[in-house]
Simulated scan of single mutants.
Amino acid sequence: MISIKGLSKVFRTKHQEVRAVDDLSLQIKKGEIYGVIGYSGAGKSTFIRLLNRLEDPTDGKVTIDDQELTSLNKGKLREARQEIGMIFQHFNLLWSRTVHDNIAFPLEIAGVPKSERTKRVNELIDLVGLSGRGNSYPSQLSGGQKQRVGIARALANKPKVLLCDEATSALDPETTDSILDLLVDINEKLGLTIVLITHEMHVIRKICHQVAVMEQGKIVEQGDVLDVFLYPKEQVTKKFVDQVMGDPEREHSLQLIKDTYKTGEILRLHFVGESTNQALISEISRKFVLDVNILHGKITQTQKGAYGTMFVQFLGDKEEITRAIEYIQSTSVEVEVSPDD
């Protein structure tokens, strides 16, 4: 659906050169919700503006649905942009227009007849959950309602791709979740391909199928969201995963807990998908002569399934502990044993 090859953007001034996006390549499938995450200055906002040529690339190609946007002239680009919707962090609504007229604006520009515009706008108002608010002005709406108007406006021309530039960053957590639920609903109902940039791993965890991690203009890690949660390779990715899992000392957690609980064996268990429903601790207690203490645990949900970690302490005979560990390793639960002193 979306093919990005060797994409670069260099900003030049008299005194310096800033490479905001650096030789970036990605493939995004039709109907996917693809997340791009990075800290401030990583280049993600420039990247998403390159996708619809709000910024022209220094190098590289962007192809959407077999049409290479980077080679289009201004006239053809205007036509192509009608199939690419975009929503923004700060809504970018027309404050002197009602909800209805804000949503209708891109249809007016496209020359859609008034009767057809009205029908389409009413459909979109219902779709985004704003029934009865068509005559309201942006100043009369909450932040979440304003973003719903922005989403409806982005969908007006029935785009194939929806680009989201930090679409929930200005919203409180509860409103953020409601907007994310709406995006999932739109993705499923319309089969829309969504590219979403954010600095919040919660957003990636909740709705994305695939994720790419940006740092200094480059993609440093990418893959299935659940795989990235399970096996983050880069330090920046580990920090993002820790936002959700609440393990800020990820690299040292086992040793830190072992220093606190000096007896027995400390394990970190990784539960994925169906294994999160296993009554593993009960099984261990029944099968082996051990005392089992649960020290810490958390389970979180991604689009591809659940993922959880749990720290446990096994107290008992060393051979019995070894047998218990071997039993866990025979299941779908992954086990990490504390390092030796």
Rank of each mutant, 00 (worst) to 15 (best):
S3L: 14
G6T: 12
S8K: 05
S8A: 01
E17S: 15
S25K: 15
L26F: 12
Q27D: 15
K30C: 01
I37F: 01
G41I: 10
A42V: 07
A42I: 10
R49A: 03
T58D: 03
G60M: 12
T70E: 13
L72S: 04
K76E: 12
L77V: 12
R78F: 00
R78W: 01
Q82E: 08
Q82G: 10
M86D: 02
F88G: 00
F88W: 00
H90W: 06
L93R: 02
W95K: 04
S96Q: 10
S96P: 00
R97K: 15
T98W: 12
N102Q: 05
I103D: 09
F105I: 01
F105C: 00
P113K: 10
P113V: 07
R117I: 15
E123N: 14
E123C: 12
V128E: 09
V128K: 07
S131Q: 12
G132F: 14
Y137A: 12
S142M: 09
Q145K: 10
V149I: 10
A156S: 13
L162K: 01
D165S: 14
E166C: 03
E166L: 03
L171R: 09
D172R: 03
S178W: 08
D181R: 06
V184L: 14
D185Y: 15
I186M: 01
L192D: 04
T198D: 12
H202I: 01
I207W: 11
H209R: 07
V211N: 05
A212K: 07
M214R: 11
K218M: 05
K218Q: 12
I219K: 14
I219A: 02
V228W: 11
F229Y: 08
F229L: 10
V236Q: 06
K238P: 04
K239Q: 14
F240L: 08
V241A: 05
V244R: 04
V244L: 06
G246A: 03
G246K: 06
R250V: 08
E251D: 09
L254C: 08
T260S: 02
L269P: 01
S275Y: 14
S275L: 13
A279C: 05
A279N: 11
L280S: 13
L280W: 15
E283W: 09
R286H: 15
L290T: 00
I294E: 14
T300Y: 11
T300F: 13
Q301K: 15
Q303N: 13
K304F: 09
Y307D: 00
T309R: 13
V312P: 07
G316W: 10
E319Q: 07
I321N: 06
R323K: 15
A324S: 14
I328R: 02
Q329H: 02
V335T: 14
S338N: 03
